[in-house]
Nucleic acid binder design. Structure first.
Lengths: 140, 140, 140, 140
DNA sequence: GTGGTCTAGACCACC
DNA sequence: GTGGTCTAGACCACC
């Protein structure tokens, strides 16, 4: 697959890996129930140590992104649904983080808005649409 | 001051503290050059371990939010400017994180958009406005 | 059946499921020899990944709570008896865990005692009573 | 110090270590703010690998038992206080776990009660007493 | 000095 | 085959 990792970047390798896998799940490159490459396989491919992959996988499991079964392998977990209110609170927190980040970056409100719109357009298909649920399959 | 931490929440206390200080800086409750409470003082007030405060301050310093002068104390740092391109890259990354988070939360695109607009409105005054950057040139 | 899981809670789903099944067995909602729902069935019902159910079942089997017969399904196992001494050691360990937990929660001794009495009253019928062990001899 | 570890026991070493440290904190052998032995030191003493100690310490930090500061060391954290209601819920859960465990062990209600009383007596001094708070120091 | 990450590779349990 | 734990030891950032 298309994971890559930069040991020089300063960001720990297992963190880089986690972020890429999360993104892959969120963008649909990895789908619910799909089997992840084995720890060894991915380690070989990225020429990193199996322990490093293992650490990434373990944290992803703790975060509910993947599910691991001994002797079987790791699988992309079903997406969490949570109660609507908790969802709103978490979203609010995420947006606040974005605003704080934008402030720190001295990004002005217009730039932020424009970039948000662009990014959202690119993600629109992946984010669940209002009336549709994600198991019906058709997304007319 | 008005910091509060919930030791039971699962989120490490120093992370909670960092987030609140960052927010305080971003919302103007703490202003450039303002002196932070001493590690000891804040620890006493929150009845947490001084090491916890120290860890928060250390990370905030590494992130450029505050600056520490030996024997004088810690102060809110001048906001970073960075090159425009780095700014864009960092913003893009922050937006991507938001999208991934929204996906994990099963938030649909419309909800995300609406909540973003609301949040942005609340923050508009703090984020530098298009035509009036705070010290550099305007780039309308 | 009436299992429920909260994917947002931070506690791994398979752990939540295990705890509920253990409780169901201990409270008599599931009885010795009773057939468990199949992995698939339970996964569908809870809209979680079959691997998640599988992991819960695997651990329950290792703990001796259920037994799995290939091609037949899983069944609630007969309760273990163990030697009296092992029983005492295990009980002592469980009580120690409770004390440590109570300490971490800053619960005082009186509160712990009262709550224990209340809880025990609610469980008294399920726990084998002194004079009437369920199949072995009585040791009044 | 008096930690010990049995590599043959089947229980992972880092779990054994975590349990002992938790107990040490709960019984007052380790007190708030006290510095933990360094990762290397403890590894040498127990003749286990520093990584194993490190794993234990990292999990303890996640659980709020200790606090780690890079370059300084690890310290016993201030005890969590949490809101009273959450405290009650957590206690209720812990008691329920005990009951389930007792059931699985075929322990009868009387035995459980007696053993609880004994254990509680041994712990009474450590568990915060009703009217006293834990920072006044005197414990008449 | 401190902890954090990583490699290389062993051995284990479970399938 | 799968992941989990552990060793031995390197190198890093931070103090």
């Amino acid at each position: 697959m298309w994971y890559y990792v930069d040991p020089q970047s300063g960001v720990p390798i297992y963190v880089q890996l986690k972020e890429q896998i999360k993104k892959a799940v969120a963008t649909g490159l990895l789908t619910e129930g799909e089997q992840m490459p084995s720890v060894r396989e991915l380690a070989l491919q990225l020429t990193i140590n199996p322990n490093t992959v293992s650490k990434a996988y373990q944290e992803l499991e703790r975060e509910g992104i993947i599910q691991t079964a001994r002797g079987l392998g790791s699988f992309v977990a079903k997406r969490q649904k949570g109660k609507e209110q908790e969802q709103k609170i978490a979203l609010d927190k995420a947006l606040e983080k974005l605003m704080i980040e934008a402030y720190q970056l001295s990004v002005d409100a217009d730039t932020l808005h424009n970039e948000f719109i662009d990014k959202l357009a690119a993600w629109k298909d992946r984010l669940v649409k209002g009336a549709q649920n994600n198991d019906s399959g058709n997304r007319t």
